[in-house]
């Protein structure tokens, strides 16, 4: 099974965006990210928390995030992910893009008929 093409690219794109968003403030490990996403009550991980990991590896491969081992406050080793400069730039661009698009779509959807 190479890339699963049935999954909608929109959903995948959304997940990628949200992961980048969570990492904006500080580096986090995978579980931390899922916790943050849960706080926001977004349901991009319907299929389980695990589905986060393919996204993390994908973003790292694309050079948008980087990762390193760090010790948690509970003295355990965990893999922390952080935005790269490319990642920040990409996020800003994508965000602007998203805003433009959603603005346009909202205009159309709200237009009085």
């Amino acid at each position: 099974m190479t890339r699963d093409r049935r999954k909608s690219d929109v959903l995948q794109g959304t997940l990628d965006m949200l992961v980048l968003k969570t990492l904006q403030l500080e580096p986090m490990h995978g579980w931390g990210i899922t916790e943050r996403l849960e706080q926001w009550s977004v349901s991009v991980l319907q299929l389980g928390q695990g589905t986060l990991y393919p996204a993390l590896y994908r973003l790292e491969r694309q050079g948008l995030i980087r990762s390193e081992w760090k010790i948690t406050e509970n003295n355990r080793r965990a893999r922390y992910y952080a935005l790269t400069r490319d990642g920040r730039k990409h996020f800003t661009e994508e965000l602007a893009n998203w805003r433009r698009t959603s603005h346009a779509i909202n205009l159309v959807l709200d237009a009085a008929l």
Binding site: M1, T2, R3, D4, L47, G48, Q49, G50, T51, Y53, P54, Y57, R58, R61
Partner: peptide
């Protein structure tokens, strides 16, 4: 475990991301 979803399945999907797909496969 339930919350995480199928461990093997996730691993497999993740491998898809880091493997240089065809050649390595």
């Amino acid at each position: 475990l339930i919350k995480f979803g199928g461990v093997e399945h996730v691993k497999e999907q993740t491998r898809d991301e880091f493997r240089p797909a065809l050649l390595e496969d």
